[in-house]
């Protein structure tokens, strides 16, 4: 009976952790909506992540590497389920433009405290860049998900 009890406890714990993981990332329907709302831009890639912050200074979210080509205008869009979008920020940066000090661009302006759903970036140097999706400073307290979309706008005219 004791062994049965231990088995039950372990099974419940395993299921609890599994369902937590299963609900982690955004559903494909949201990814599709976000990817096809980029006007005439061509969808290239998505960045899908769960977000959960237990402590105020805890780093959350994810970063990804992405190769961008010179002479191309890209669009970076951020989508999240209702009520969660205003809590998250997508940032484009590299080693010379650190995420926290001077990134190339992000969906949240720390100075004006305003959000934008997307931004366009003209790449002038082929290479590796980073995309991150994280909670805004001071935000977070419930768990959720967010998805970033990289799309091709066109050859840069600049």
């Amino acid at each position: 009976m004791k062994r049965l009890f231990i088995f039950l406890v372990l099974a419940v714990l395993a299921l609890a952790s599994f369902t937590d993981k299963a609900n982690a990332q955004c559903k494909q329907q949201l990814v599709y909506q976000c990817a096809t709302q980029t006007e005439k831009a061509i969808y290239l890639r998505d960045f899908n992540t769960k977000l959960k912050r237990d402590a105020p200074d805890e780093e959350t979210g994810m970063k990804w590497t992405v190769v961008l080509n010179k002479g191309t205008q890209y669009r970076f869009s951020l989508c999240a389920p209702d009520g969660f979008q205003e809590q998250v920020v997508l940032t484009l940066y590299d080693t010379e433009h650190p995420e926290n000090s001077k990134p190339y661009g992000c969906t949240y302006d720390k100075v004006t405290k305003s959000d934008r759903k997307s931004f366009d970036f003209i790449c002038n140097k082929t290479g590796m860049y980073y995309i991150s999706i994280r909670f805004k400073p001071g935000e977070g307290g419930k768990k959720g998900c967010a998805v970033g979309i990289l799309s091709f706008v066109g050859k840069s005219k600049s």
Binding site: A14, K21, A22, A24, Q25, C26, K27, Q28, Q29
Partner: peptide
């Protein structure tokens, strides 16, 4: 039950449905 539950949950892995 566990296996069935995990199979249903797996639809959510890396995307959700």
């Amino acid at each position: 039950v566990c296996v069935t539950f995990m199979q249903f949950s797996c639809g959510g892995c890396n995307g959700g449905s």
